[in-house]
Each structure stands twice: as C-alpha cells, then as structure tokens.
Amino acid sequence: MSAPSYNFAYLDEQTKRMIRRAILKAIAVPGYQVPFASREMPMPYGWGTGGVQITASIIGPKDVLKVIDQGSDDTTNAVSIRAFFAKVASVAVTTRTREADIIQTRHRIPETPLAEGQIIVFQVPIPEPLRFLEPRETETRLMHALEDYGPMHIKLYEDIARHGHIATTYAYPVRVAGRYLMDPSPTPKFDNPKMHISPALQLFGAGREKRIYAIPPNTEVVSLDFEDHPFEVQRFDRTCALCGAAGVYLDEVLTDDKGARMFVCSDTDHCECRQAAPRLAEGA
C-alpha cells in the first residue's frame, strides 16, 4: 500500500476556503467567536489544532514561519508544529521574530514588538471568556448578544473583595473595540497590553471548540478593570540571568532540590538576540 499524499499545507482546498471565510467574518466582527467546521488534524486536540488550521489556511510558499510555545522556539510542541509546516508546506522557518511573516504561538506574545504586515496566530484551548461563569454555550452566546458582561465584572470584583486584588493571572479577559468580551488565550496578563493597538493582525483558533476570532491591526483591546483597581501586569523584581533583560516575562527554573532557582527570559529569541548583541541590549 502506498502512503496517502496530502495537499499543500495539509488541508484540502475546500476546508481552507471554509476557514478563510470564517477568518474574514472574524476580522469584520472583532472579538466575536465565529463557529467553524474544525477538522481532525494529525496532532491531538489541545495541541494547537485551531492555530494549525488557521496557519495552514493562510500560509503561502513565500511566507516565513515562526512557532513558539511558552515564548520559546525550542519547546517540544513548537518544534513539532514548525517541522509539520516545513514538511507539508515547504515554507521557510525562522526563530527570529522580526523575520517572520506568520508567528504561531501558544501562551505568549513575543517581547520584540510586532510590525505591520505580521500575523500572529494564537492557539486557544477555551475561546469563551464566560465559560467558567456559565458552562452552557446557549447562555454565553446570549450574554454576548446582549452585551451582558456584568457577571464577569462581578467575578473579578469578588476576587478584590477576597484578596484585595484581581486573582486572574492568565487568560485575563479583554474588551475588543468596545464591544466583544474576549479571551486572549492563556497568555499571562503580562502580554495583554501588547494586544492593544498592535500593528499586527491577531488571529485566534480553537480547534476542539471549533471557533475562530480575530483582532484587526490598530484595534483597541482593553483589559477589564475597575477605577479603584486598575489593570496591572506582573512585574519581576529581577532580570534575566542569561541576558540581563528587565521588563520581560521570566521563566522560573529550579536548579536543585534545595530551593535554588534562576529566572530566565521566556522569549528565547529575544534572549538570544540580546546575548548576541550585548551593546544593543544596553541601549534597550
């Protein structure tokens, strides 16, 4: 038996058209979750099938692709997805944020500011920001239709009443273009400000939940907060142990079993660039 052969970028043309139409609707209604007929992909649900389907539908032979997971190009899943596209679409791949046309990501937005013309594709596990307040889709869809986002404010306020501050650290809900409440995917809230008025197009794919949503470039993305408790990002009181960067998101690495630890950049490309060009880093 000969092995089956696959189309450019794995998906068949009809599937791509269906996904492309969903992407256009998603861009036209920023933050709204467009249902789409998500396909079985050759990697499991939860491993980025939504992001992979979006990337496969937009990518062309001239594109340069970067794939990160947890900010890093060399984590297992990033390596796997990058290899997948190198194989099925023969595209050029890179680890450099600046060189990439399309960046597929899980859980981070690169530290290097994105530029006009770039597209960032987020892998999304649970697209519905209201899901943990209301498990039923029929209800949450109605809440979005009526712009009934009071329960989310109440939930955040309960945190404040209990802890003195909002205790949501990732997948922190945002309001897009003043209308839809949106889950930014499980990125740390540290990255939320990067979504606001970004010059890049931001696409979100949830394969298992069969939803696509988008933020066009130059669009308002506001993290929910209260006048007396404004939105704040995580601040690290130290710098990267490898490149010395401050004001970036750091990974905590355990170095022994006695409690010793070090902090290093989560964005490996950013860290490597700084290590390679220390003088530039000083200026940064």
Binding site: M1, A3, M41, P42, T76, V253, L254, V264
Partner: peptide, 24 residues
C-alpha cells in the same frame, strides 16, 4: 510547570510530537 528543573525534561517513548500521518 517549569521549563527546566533538576533531572530535566526526559521525553522518552511518546506519541506527543509525532504527526499523525497514517503509515508513517
């Protein structure tokens, strides 16, 4: 939870990073 820790990340025999292409 951690990118690295004592003992490291040992991948071992796993389907996790295979592409599910039948016959390969």
């Amino acid at each position: 939870c951690f990118k690295d820790m004592p003992g490291g990340q040992v991948l071992g025999p796993t389907f996790d990073y295979t592409h599910r292409l039948l016959g390969e």
